[in-house]
């Protein structure tokens, strides 16, 4: 498997095929004397920002913690949770426990639900 080609930026879905964001980053564990090991996949705006520049990631994190105080889902999903890598990457994690769900629920509660006709 080619990590950049087959995993990074792929669609993440839960066991019921519900979309839960893209794979924004990969976390590798490097130990002396051993080949690097894929530890987890990462999600989030800061992860994306880091792909442009590390300093940008710092700003995004600072801005995020000031504006947005919602309970976040896990930004890191251990690789052991990954069940299948195909067109999409399926992980053994409920959509309701994902980071995407957390911020969309937050947005929904704070704004969307207050506009008539949303439900």
């Amino acid at each position: 498997m080619d990590l950049i080609r087959d995993v990074l930026d792929k669609q993440l879905v839960d066991p019921e095929e519900r979309r839960m964001g893209k794979i924004d980053g990969l976390v590798l564990e490097v130990e002396a004397g051993k080949p690097p090991r894929l530890e987890a996949i990462e999600q989030g705006a800061a992860t994306l920002a880091r792909r442009f520049h590390p300093r940008l990631a710092g700003w995004v994190e600072a801005l995020g913690s000031r504006l947005y105080r919602a309970p976040g889902g896990p930004a890191r999903i251990p690789w052991s949770k990954v069940r299948d890598v195909g067109i999409d990457v399926e992980v053994d994690l409920e959509f309701e426990k994902s980071r995407l769900y957390a911020w969309q629920e937050w947005l929904s509660d704070k704004i969307i639900r207050r506009i008539p006709g949303a439900g």
Binding site: R18, G21, K22, L100, L107, I111, I112
Partner: peptide, 21 residues
């Protein structure tokens, strides 16, 4: 599609808050 959210013309706004926003 670029950020991997749920999308679809038949979903209610509360179920795809990002899309509706």
């Amino acid at each position: 599609q670029g950020f991997g959210w749920n999308w679809g013309e038949d979903l209610k706004p509360v179920d795809d808050a990002g899309f509706a926003s």
